[in-house]
């Protein structure tokens, strides 16, 4: 089984548009939306949910006010400022470490599991999909990414699929690390802006750190060709394959508004053509 992660460092570079197009082109893949903070892929692929599971990512401290003697030891020992002046747990800040429960002299504090979101196993027109949603204000998105990837793997095994395509989240922190570890290749979608270049370099370093082969796609490359050339030079100097230069097109937004992938909505467009070429190159590398 092969795994490909699409990511970007900087948000809004077109990661999800490209992942959705790949899902259509791949035909035999399971798609995993690992941008669990702000998942958007379902708006293009319209999954039909077959199974929903609660996600219990962490624990939270609960104070039994009938036992509490207001000694304040919990607040004093909490490193996360999660206990307020009137000794209430601020759930949003609590990391479930259990220190307060340990120091409480009267045993008024317990750790309880909290439901932080849901994970879904779904079917789309083009195959299967694993995705999830964090409840508003919940944390631990890295753990939920791990769960989505596990679900995708179980699906792939069960349905005999040989590829998992992962839509990653922006940044380089915990959810991103969770979405790239152990994959066969990563496609970094960037744009020819100073921010795009800066963030590309950081993501490539991250991929090197985790020994994942990076590929690069410059989206909207014609918005600033000087910057595109800088990206090409950077990639050449670092021996990174640039597998696609996708032009700017208002058709991308139109397709999004129509709730369709660019491949379905504008099959003859330049954007669809370039993404198809890119897909061919990646599938050759992945030996599909």
């Amino acid at each position: 089984m092969k795994q490909l992660t699409v990511l970007s460092g900087k948000g809004g570079t077109g990661k999800t548009t490209i992942t959705a197009a790949f899902a259509v082109l791949a035909k035999n893949a399971v798609v995993a939306d690992c941008d669990v903070d702000a998942p958007d892929l379902h708006m293009l692929l319209h999954p039909e949910v077959m199974e929903t599971r609660e996600f219990r990512g962490s624990k939270v401290a609960v104070i039994d006010k009938t036992k509490c003697t207001n000694c304040g030891l919990c607040k004093e020992n909490c490193r996360f400022d999660a206990i307020t002046g009137d000794l209430q747990v601020e759930a949003i800040a609590c990391e479930g470490c259990g220190v307060c429960a340990h120091v409480c002299p009267v045993g008024a504090i317990t750790l309880t599991e909290r439901v932080s979101g849901s994970s879904y196993i779904s079917k789309t027109q083009y195959g299967f999909m694993a995705h999830a949603l964090l409840n508003p204000g919940e944390s631990n998105s890295g753990k939920l990414v791990t769960l989505v990837r596990q679900n995708a793997k179980i699906l792939a095994k069960k349905e005999n699929r040989d590829l998992i395509i992962i839509d990653g989240s922006p940044g380089i922190g915990c959810p991103v690390i969770a979405s790239v570890t152990g994959v066969d290749a990563a496609l970094v979608v960037t744009e020819p802006t100073l921010s795009g270049i800066h963030d590309l370099e950081r993501v490539v370093q991250l991929l090197n750190h985790f020994k994942v082969t990076p590929f690069v796609c410059v989206n909207m490359y014609d918005v600033n060709t000087d910057n595109t050339n800088k990206i090409l030079t950077y990639c050449k100097d670092n021996s990174i394959d640039v597998v696609g230069l996708v032009p700017f097109s208002s058709e991308v937004t139109k397709a999004m508004v129509n709730g369709k992938t660019i491949i379905e909505n504008f099959p003859a467009s330049n954007v669809a053509g370039e993404i198809t070429n890119m897909w061919k190159k990646l599938s050759t590398f992945l030996d599909l």
Binding site: T146, R149, Q150, K153, T181, G182, V183, F210, K211
Partner: peptide, 13 residues
């Protein structure tokens, strides 16, 4: 024999 987080990813190759 495998990288970080491998149990989450690359086991059934």
């Amino acid at each position: 024999t495998v990288g970080d987080h491998a149990g989450v990813s690359k086991t059934q190759r």
